[in-house]
Design a protein around this nucleic acid. Structure first.
Lengths: 341, 341
DNA sequence: CTTGATTCTGTTATCGATAACATATAGGAC
DNA sequence: GTCCTATATGTTATCGATAACAGAATCAAG
């Protein structure tokens, strides 16, 4: 950290290169018209001074910060990480940078975060999931930038949506269970009203059970989201203790499903012989477990990529026609953990 | 997106509240002296206008952006995610925000990222790992802000360091294997020079083998980092094919170890009976696998937390005494996957 | 050589806040 | 009531860039 002297500015570069600051500013943007030779001189001067553009100032002046704000519930979740990757990659060509925040599945925290992020004047906002505080909705509306909600299909969207119905996705699993001949079917999920996507899955799952004329009583809520492997393990034991006749269980995520699977195996239960186990999210772990775990693939990365494309469109359009709905189709991946004989 | 009218500024709030802009500015900072009553009036005015502070402008003026830049190799890695969480939580009280970038294990990409981030004028920078391009080193040196390197102990640190010796950590595993009586020992890692931490682990592992007078030939390099479960699975089969006498294997990460474990079980091999398998990183999956996988815990979250504490110190100190080295001690977690009898 | 179009470069005002300094008001101590 | 200190507020200049406009240089065509 050699001496805290102030970093060089465009004026310094301009001085050294013998041009005006404005020309330096232009030289740093590809599209602007600057003579080849001048540009070279400027780049050299900049490099020799160790000059780095100040996008804080640039943003203030041009009213374009190059930020896209994004919130996800948890950083430690491969699904959201995949979506984030899709988003980052999709925005890469535009040079936009992601401003990331974790809500920890909490709408109050989301509100705090969104406000903090809006202070940075992002050019677009991506939020995960459909539940938001009133103030948060107001803040976003006032921000007058495109908003994209992902991973859900909210009843009252804030703007554009790239998502799927969590309830509908879960019902796919019921269909699969029924088709495989299971009748005593259970569900393991989180304990909190905070994970609205998890709750939607449960709701859709139970409704589908009823539609098939089956009992929807075998439900176990366990722990705060994100529900862990350990909680999946505890939950399956509790479920088996209470409803020993259970033949098949869906867990709210692949992680809990894996925990449940491991717990069963430790207890000497055969999966799927004694009990079938399914998850949600198409994590790597579901594919590589023994047996591989039946799951639902919601194309997490695609969600991010589509959101990026949508943002690019909306920013170009200027027009505020952003009530688009991009529907992602969840796919059931039938694997050994639920397949009979 | 109701009409793209310009958002309100402090001047608007000041006008409505009947005070000067400066007082509004003060009212938004806790420490500043503003009469209770005035502050209330201002907050009300702000809320009714939907005013949100512009930290772009604030940062320009005060020369404090409230950003800490951080790079990690991959977003989809629970270890780095944990460090990031520790960092975020540690910085929360200061109100600083993380500006995140993924290098994808690539020094050129790291250089690009660092420059992009430095344009935002972060008040500190956290980088993961010890390999950097010359230009990147120069950029960081010129930036005149504290730099903390994590997850490594570089020979030529850029600034402060919060890390551990990857080579030393891997040698712990050799000690464990030898103690358990294994003699024919192998290593599975990535194929690329890009994951320097992975290479360090391999190097340390092989050196330790030689120090114990054992053969260091059973090494398989497989795929690009981050090495996946699938690659772990392929690799263990290839390793067994080439060196059937192998009794114990360390994989460069828990993910590949889990892949290897699953592959062995599918082949009907007993773990640890026929072959012992260990990983690295203390992922959840290692704990919940069947059998649980022996691994090395490097306290990923603590790394982030310590980095945060260090940054807070360095920023307070003003003094540029930032060659601190915080040593994290890796711990071997001996589990069933390598324990005899 | 003049003209007009095109390309390149400079000048001035401004983005929205805060620092630094100046001033006003309030509250005790004597 | 005076003086002093502490608290509260206002004024002016500035942070580092870019927008918008204006002016100079270049070049081809007539």
């Amino acid at each position: 950290m050699p001496g805290r002297k102030r970093p060089p500015t465009m004026a310094d570069v301009a001085h050294l290169a013998g041009v005006s600051p404005m020309t330096v500013s232009r030289a740093f943007r590809e599209e602007a018209s600057v003579k080849q030779e001048t540009r070279r001189k400027i780049r050299e001067a900049a490099e020799s001074l160790g000059y780095v553009l100040d996008s804080t100032a640039a943003g203030l002046s041009s009213r374009k910060t190059g930020f896209v704000a994004a919130t996800i519930p948890s950083i430690n979740n491969a699904n959201f990480a995949d979506s984030l990757r899709g988003l980052t990659e999709g925005l890469a060509e535009t040079g936009m940078q992601i401003l990331l925040g974790y809500t920890d599945y909490d709408v109050a925290e989301e509100e705090r975060l969104i406000e903090q992020m809006l202070r940075r004047r992002p050019e677009a906002v991506v939020v995960t999931g459909g539940a938001h505080s009133d103030r948060c909705r107001r803040l976003l509306a006032n921000a007058a930038v495109p908003v994209v909600e992902i991973w859900d299909q909210p009843e009252e969207p804030l703007g554009a949506v790239v998502g799927f119905s969590n309830a509908g996705a879960a019902s796919l699993m019921v269909d699969h269970f029924v088709e495989q001949g299971y009748r005593n079917i259970g569900f393991i999920g989180g304990d909190s009203s905070r994970d609205t996507r998890g709750l939607d899955r449960r709701r859709g799952f139970l409704r589908a059970l009823r539609e098939h004329g089956l009992s929807d009583e075998r439900v176990l809520a366990y722990g705060m989201p994100p529900i862990t492997m350990a909680q999946g393990a505890e939950a399956i034991e509790a479920l088996r203790a209470r409803w020993p006749e259970t033949e098949a269980v869906m867990c709210v995520s692949d992680l809990s499903a894996f925990g449940a699977l491991s717990a069963c195996q430790r207890l000497g239960l055969k999966v799927p012989g004694d009990i079938a186990i399914a998850g949600f999210g198409a994590y790597d772990i579901a594919e590589h477990a023994n047996p591989p775990i039946t799951t639902i693939d919601v194309s997490a990365r695609e969600i991010g990529a589509r959101a990026a494309a949508l943002i690019i469109d909306l920013l170009e359009a200027e027009q505020s026609s952003d009530l688009s709905l991009v529907e992602i189709e969840p796919k059931l991946l039938a694997r050994a953990s639920t397949l009979k004989g």
